[in-house]
Amino acid sequence: MSLSSFGIGGGGGTSLAEEEATGSTGAPQATNVAVTRAGPLDTYVVMGGRIKRCWFNATDPLLPNYVYRADVSPSGSKVNITVHQRADLGRAGLLTYIIDFKQAGGGTVITTENRTMPPNLAAKMQYDINRWQRGQSDCSKTMPATASAKAAKPQARVQ
């Protein structure tokens, strides 16, 4: 199933921003990702399935030391996915990342917030969300560069 069939991605949504999460220190900041024509519940069903399949699968998870939690409002107009560090017995520990799906007019606004996720993982998660919003559905192994990784990269000097 494609997000574009719900008006998500494939030109069906209106992109507000496509920023890489850098995991900067300081106050957490939400990053607006997209507005879609689908409702929050429909958007969550598609995106949540991809998140579970790509980030939390049993054989090769992106986030083996984290757990996934979802909360859906009774009306379905708001859905919240939270990612937590894995605590004893697989329980949810420290909150590290938030993905919100909220009703906005005739569509859904998807926002993300990195609380304490390492910058490389936060950047990968934002990269995947942006790809899926545009209609891709695969579990890419591509790791985007983060601002801190770019700064740490040694510069070649010509003499």
Score class of each variant (00 low, 15 high):
residue 96 T to H: 04
residue 135 G to D: 08
residue 83 V to N: 00
residue 133 Q to S: 14
residue 64 P to Q: 01
residue 58 A to I: 04
residue 121 L to P: 02
residue 133 Q to Y: 13
residue 99 I to N: 06
residue 104 A to H: 10
residue 52 K to V: 12
residue 105 G to Q: 05
residue 34 A to K: 07
residue 72 V to M: 11
residue 101 F to S: 05
residue 45 V to T: 14
residue 134 R to Y: 04
residue 58 A to Y: 05
residue 87 A to M: 04
residue 64 P to R: 03
residue 77 S to H: 11
residue 37 R to T: 14
residue 86 R to F: 02
residue 67 V to K: 00
residue 40 P to L: 09
residue 27 A to S: 14
residue 68 Y to K: 09
residue 92 A to Y: 07
residue 27 A to P: 07
residue 113 E to P: 00
residue 62 L to H: 00
residue 74 P to I: 07
residue 60 D to V: 00
residue 70 A to P: 01
residue 44 Y to I: 04
residue 103 Q to I: 05
residue 97 Y to H: 14
residue 90 G to Q: 09
residue 87 A to G: 11
residue 130 N to R: 09
residue 123 A to D: 01
residue 51 I to Q: 03
residue 111 T to R: 09
residue 135 G to K: 08
residue 66 Y to C: 05
residue 81 I to A: 09
residue 33 V to E: 10
residue 83 V to A: 02
residue 70 A to Y: 02
residue 120 N to L: 10
residue 79 V to P: 06
residue 79 V to H: 06
residue 65 N to P: 01
residue 95 L to C: 05
residue 33 V to H: 07
residue 28 P to Y: 08
residue 117 M to W: 03
residue 133 Q to A: 15
residue 34 A to G: 10
residue 124 K to C: 03
residue 38 A to R: 06
residue 100 D to I: 00
residue 111 T to P: 00
residue 109 V to D: 00
residue 97 Y to G: 06
residue 37 R to L: 13
residue 91 R to D: 03
residue 103 Q to E: 11
residue 128 D to I: 06
residue 47 M to N: 02
residue 99 I to G: 08
residue 116 T to W: 06
residue 32 N to Y: 13
residue 48 G to M: 05
residue 107 G to V: 08
residue 56 F to V: 06
residue 84 H to V: 08
residue 63 L to P: 01
residue 31 T to P: 00
residue 55 W to N: 03
residue 31 T to R: 14
residue 119 P to F: 08
residue 112 T to G: 06
residue 64 P to V: 03
residue 43 T to F: 07
residue 135 G to M: 10
residue 130 N to S: 15
residue 116 T to E: 11
residue 78 K to F: 13
residue 108 T to G: 04
residue 54 C to M: 05
residue 105 G to M: 07
residue 43 T to S: 15
residue 116 T to Q: 13
residue 62 L to G: 00
residue 119 P to T: 12
residue 76 G to D: 08
residue 115 R to K: 15
residue 132 W to D: 08
residue 82 T to I: 04
residue 45 V to M: 13
residue 123 A to C: 08
residue 47 M to A: 13
residue 122 A to T: 03
residue 100 D to G: 09
residue 125 M to Q: 11
residue 113 E to D: 02
residue 87 A to R: 11
residue 85 Q to C: 05
residue 53 R to W: 00
residue 93 G to D: 08
residue 54 C to N: 11
residue 91 R to V: 03
residue 27 A to R: 14
residue 44 Y to N: 11
residue 70 A to Q: 12
residue 85 Q to A: 13
residue 102 K to N: 15
residue 73 S to M: 08
residue 52 K to N: 11
residue 76 G to T: 09
residue 85 Q to T: 14
residue 108 T to E: 04
residue 34 A to W: 11
residue 132 W to M: 12
residue 69 R to F: 00
residue 106 G to E: 07
residue 35 V to Y: 15
residue 57 N to M: 02
residue 76 G to P: 10
residue 50 R to E: 04
residue 134 R to V: 06
residue 133 Q to F: 12
residue 38 A to L: 08
residue 73 S to L: 09
residue 97 Y to L: 09
residue 76 G to Q: 10
residue 62 L to E: 01
residue 40 P to I: 10
residue 89 L to Y: 12
residue 60 D to C: 01
residue 79 V to C: 11
residue 52 K to M: 13
residue 75 S to Y: 02
residue 48 G to Y: 05
residue 122 A to P: 04
residue 128 D to A: 14
residue 107 G to H: 07
